[in-house]
Design a protein around this nucleic acid. Structure first.
Lengths: 342, 342
DNA sequence: CTGTTAGCGCTTTCAC
DNA sequence: GTGAAAGCGCTAACAG
């Protein structure tokens, strides 16, 4: 067991008290230049490193922020986390990441665990649980992607409903009337909002919402793929598909290609790798997970710095990027699309 | 400031000592059933939660493991982290994730920071730095994807060299002689090994290694894309490309499609989303980041459980998955490939 | 089975 | 500018 160098050791070596050594370590100016030098020398010579646990215990908060997402493996959340980690490191904060994997009880357990660690703050993608007890906490919390249930807090989201409306309007403009909708469970707020935008656009165009064209049980690409297959097997298949999430888009794309039905138009909410390489290239609503992460971190840091103002609701706009698949006309084909898209 | 419930409060409420309450909390059997009940009742009534910082300080280690990867946003590492997090949570451990972003000094700073937090163990993708000082530490460390410099420790890697050899042999078997190689910097061990496998296969086939067909400066997809472009512009372009990493494969694929040169064969070390949807579908060496994460976590846990045996070197095999792009013959085209591949 | 004492390593009083 | 004492909340050591 290698002996740990403590602050008192440094103090002894520098012929001063632990408190003064502590002052030097923490950059307190009220130390004479001479003493400071002696301490710094001792720190280097002994190879002293602050014990962050002891410091955090004494200070009452840990220099760590907790991040809770749905799945770390999801490229979207991975990008969000990465950005948060970058911002945190610049501030000298550690990041503990956890995933709720959509298990409500796990979600609460995880959040509680973070509190027990006295994290300085949290950034959470809320799932099903009621986390309103967090409102009574000192610990600042910023929610991302979705709103928490039953209480007001800082939230950063995308313009889900507006974006979906834009996408479906786009398809309508190209002449589509039978537009399928593929999404995750409507229990999830983002799905719900995107579905609402889909309905908005159809209604304002006087196009009826048809149940057989709506699949809202696609938790992953595999299910989205099967549902797309079902669509294709309808007596009157859709001429366009709006996929509400990158993950589901992968499934839709796969099936359209498997069945060689790339004459069917498609727009994806959320970009994904190779979307621009496929033929036709996939028209997407571009949302920046990096920006989401950055804004959430900024909001949290503002709270850590003492911002006590009312909860802020940040909505990030999304942008339609036409690439071909969204510009296919009903009964048209990929060739037409490529031309129309450019 | 909400008053925190301490263990002593629970003890008082249960009419016992802090130590006994502590025993109950920690499941120590040497407590009478009656006392135990009283304590448990008090815990619930007061809403007591252990202070993990205080516990960790006292115990000397934190119930946290540190994970250092190159980039959290990389789907490969994201999958590794996700799997580690799952395993850790099952053991009641937290996970602090950090990325070195390929900055050597940052790498050391990060690892030191984790030590200062007294993490129970670490899982590290080593980059350039010499981390051999970790050898003298009590903290167990498992390295993933690459070996650390200058010391022996548990390592979990893929069969990089063997896999690359397999891939290139595969292309040679289909008649290719001008096979390009695209990878990241050879400073990185995985790139180096995959390059070695590439050279192995060419040499055993008596095919010379041509410098103009080797690009080892592709840190990301964008560079890989440009290098692929350079290849295509050669007087005598390659008839096949072996890409040593999923990330670079994205760039290669993009350029081949941009230039409509999907008659050129290609194999990717590492699978990626939609690889099977492209036409031709991309032949890959399948490596499982999940398995890598799981095995690394298991190794670390074994060490945490007191395993003091010699360092273990785990090599995970990779599997060639023919999908079409790797079965294109020189001078052939995508159609031929699709047929040959099935 | 239970309790007392001590102390993890640091920083916050508060005094000098 | 400096330092002594106290204690963050918990648990290891050692009694009883």
């Amino acid at each position: 067991m290698k002996k740990l160098v403590r602050l008192s050791d440094v103090a002894a070596a520098a012929n001063t008290s632990a408190k003064t050594a502590s002052r030097v370590i923490n950059g307190d100016p009220r130390v004479s230049a001479e003493t400071r030098l002696r301490v710094q020398e001792a720190v280097v010579r002994l190879g002293y490193r602050v014990d962050l646990l002891a410091r955090s215990l004494r200070r009452g908060v840990d220099d760590t922020i907790g991040v809770v997402v749905e799945s770390i493996a999801d490229p979207f959340f991975a990008a969000v986390i990465s950005e948060i980690e970058l911002a945190a490191l610049r501030r000298g904060l550690n990041v503990i990441v956890t995933s709720n994997r959509r298990l409500p009880n796990r979600e609460v357990a995880i959040v509680d665990g973070l509190r027990q660690r006295r994290v300085a703050g949290m950034i959470i993608t809320p799932h099903a649980s009621d986390l309103s007890y967090l409102a009574s906490t000192e610990t600042p919390v910023v929610f991302v992607d979705r709103h928490p249930r039953n209480f007001a807090a800082d939230v950063v989201t995308f313009d889900d409903r507006g974006g979906a409306r834009t996408a479906v309007r786009h398809l309508l403009r190209y002449g589509h009337r039978r537009i399928a909708f593929v999404s995750d469970d409507l229990e999830i707020e983002t799905s719900r909002n995107r579905h609402a935008g889909y309905v908005d656009a159809l209604q304002e165009a006087g196009v009826p919402v048809v149940a057989e064209l709506v699949a809202t049980d696609c938790a992953d690409a595999a299910v989205a793929r099967r549902r797309t297959c079902d669509f294709l097997d309808l007596d009157e298949p859709p001429t366009a598909v709006f996929s509400a999430r990158s993950e589901t888009s992968l499934g839709v794309v796969k099936m359209l290609h498997d069945r060689k039905r790339t004459d069917i138009a498609m727009v994806s909410f959320g970009d994904f790798a190779l979307a621009d390489v496929l033929s036709p290239a996939i028209t997407v609503l571009e949302q920046s997970p990096e920006l989401l992460g950055r804004l959430a971190a900024e909001r949290l840091f503002a709270r850590l710095d003492g911002d006590r103002s009312d909860p802020v609701n940040t909505v990030i706009p999304v942008r339609l990027v036409p690439r071909g698949s969204g510009e296919i006309i009903p009964g048209g084909d990929a060739e037409t699309a490529a031309v129309a898209g450019s």
